[in-house]
Design a protein around this nucleic acid. Structure first.
Length: 264
DNA sequence: GGCCAGGTCAAAG
DNA sequence: CTTTGACATGGC
């Protein structure tokens, strides 16, 4: 008999309010840019894995609308594949992904990512991602320059289709306002969400996407629209008391939840 | 015009 | 170990 966690209640509330979100967006055959495809948890092709990995790097601290333009640029130039990106010259690559911002840095990271992946995994992205155990895949991805915890988790969850919960700025903000794990670091947030959910890729997939949706539409950084928020009955914030819920700025680093600190 | 957006890394304190 | 600065575009 397992009790339903608060984390899971929030998930159910969001899913009921918004429905499935169709993450991760990819470019269909014949289309020019990535689109969301509801209820598609099917295994990803090698091309899709490459596009998702590229998008995961491009979307770092960047609005997705700009990432879509960058991916469309690559696609339009016939370069939206692991092999073509790995072989592309940096100035050209940078020019194509310019709308995504940080374009020189991202161009190098994109190229190096696919070049190293090809070298170390001649079997190809598809076999690599499908056969590697999720935790091992995550650790390995983290060793790539430009791939931090969120990007690695996005790749494991959305490209490999294996359960690894993604934490981002929206997750922290919403989690903080809801009064779940105040002041936790990345690994603590991740552990908190995973502990409250069945270890399933489809659940992690929708949950993260739903949190992004809520963060954009209601639980915004400035001027949150608590009035229409589907979670307002679960949130201390909406009902009168609006003391401090919004300031997770630097307190978000000072938490008491230590992570690996106790390696005797 | 300023703030924000599906972070990460290296340098400095 | 923690904090800070750099990286850059486009929408509101």
């Amino acid at each position: 008999m397992k009790k339903k966690s608060r984390v899971e209640k929030v998930y159910r509330g969001l899913l009921k309010a918004f429905g499935p979100q169709g993450w991760w967006p990819v470019t269909p055959r014949g289309a020019a840019s990535p689109v969301y495809t509801p209820l598609s948890y099917a295994a990803r092709s090698g091309a899709e894995i490459a596009e998702i990995c590229a998008g995961a790097i491009l979307t770092q601290n960047t609005a997705w609308t700009n990432v879509g333009k960058a991916l469309a640029g690559l696609h339009g130039a016939g370069l939206l594949s692991a092999e073509r990106i790995a072989a592309c010259r940096l100035p050209r690559l940078a020019a194509l992904i310019r709308p995504s911002g940080y374009y020189r840095q991202k161009a190098r990271r994109l190229r190096d990512f696919f070049a190293r992946a090809a070298k170390e995994h001649p079997e190809g992205l598809e076999r690599w991602f499908r056969s590697a155990p999720p935790e091992a895949l995550r650790r390995e991805l983290l060793s790539y320059k430009g791939v931090g915890p969120e990007t690695a988790d996005s790749m494991v969850l959305y490209a490999a289709g294996r359960p690894s919960f993604v934490i981002d700025a929206y997750t922290r903000r919403i989690g903080g306002r809801l009064g779940l794990g105040r002041g936790a670091d990345y690994d603590a947030w991740k552990a908190l969400f995973e502990a409250g959910l069945p270890r399933r890729a489809d659940v992690y997939n929708e949950y993260h996407a739903l949190l992004v949706r809520l963060g954009k539409e209601f639980c915004r950084k400035t001027l949150p629209l608590c009035g229409g928020c589907p979670l307002r009955s679960d949130c201390g914030r909406a009902a009168g008391r609006r003391k401090d819920h919004g300031k997770d700025r630097s307190s978000a680093r000072r938490g008491r939840i230590q992570k690996g600190a106790g390696r005797h």
